[in-house]
């Protein structure tokens, strides 16, 4: 299982601009090890943009992000697993090869591979070309990446889309286990999860008000 993590994530007055429009500004939160943040809000209020900013894929328009407890000089993005709308799956590789690549590329131990395959019940499909997977199975494969290499911060953007009820439960349990080992999760979802979220962030409120 994963090593306990002691990393805390803090956002100080961050802002996001897309196409000259300010999506949000003055956003601050602090997540201690083992805490999860639920991000909600109507469509187009910047939920995905916030997660992509933390993953280092979008620039911050203002403010800063800090991770305390990590080795000095490690950018926040390297501590993150980002699972977004796109699955990052190579259709000409088998399910096992897809995961094995991520284990290698993210510099993790190869012994994590069987566990990662089993996490969402993909072990029987390991030799199947990923191009044959259904939408739900593709999503499970994308989520299995979370187990292919340990990272303290999980950024999950609508992780439950196209998952069946049983798999949503597995995902829910996976997030709880991650928090137990001191991990941090930021989840944007519209599905009710049993995971206890330490904090909630609703975007787009000031505009409605």
């Amino acid at each position: 299982m994963q090593m306990p993590s002691h990393i805390a994530l803090a956002a100080h007055d961050i802002a996001c601009q897309r196409g000259g429009r300010t999506l949000f500004q003055g956003l601050s939160f602090t997540l201690e090890p083992g805490e999860a943040l639920l991000i909600s809000g109507p469509n187009g209020t910047g939920k995905t943009s916030l997660l992509r900013q933390i993953a280092g894929l979008l620039p911050l328009a203002a403010g800063r992000l800090t991770a305390t407890g990590a080795e000095a000089g490690t950018p926040v993005s390297e501590l993150c697993h980002y699972v977004g709308h796109l699955s990052a799956i190579k259709t000409s590789f088998s399910v096992g090869e897809n995961l094995a690549f991520w284990t290698d590329f993210l510099d993790a131990d190869e012994s994590a591979l069987p566990e990662a395959l089993a996490a969402f019940g993909l072990t029987p499909l390991a030799d199947l070309p990923a191009g044959l997977l259904s939408a739900g199975q593709r999503r499970k494969l994308a989520l299995s990446r979370l187990f292919a290499a340990p990272c303290p911060i999980w950024l999950l953007d609508e992780p439950s889309v196209s998952l069946d009820t049983a798999s949503v439960k597995l995902l829910d349990a996976a997030i709880r286990d991650h928090l137990k080992t001191g991990g941090i999760a930021l989840v944007s979802t519209h599905v009710k999860l049993k995971t206890k979220f330490a904090q909630e962030l609703t975007l787009g409120q000031e505009r409605a008000a």
């Binding site: 280092g56 796109l86 699955s87 990052a88």
Partner: peptide, 9 residues
Amino acid sequence: DGTLDVLAT
């Protein structure tokens, strides 16, 4: 397919 996002992180 979104692989570039993951490669970048």
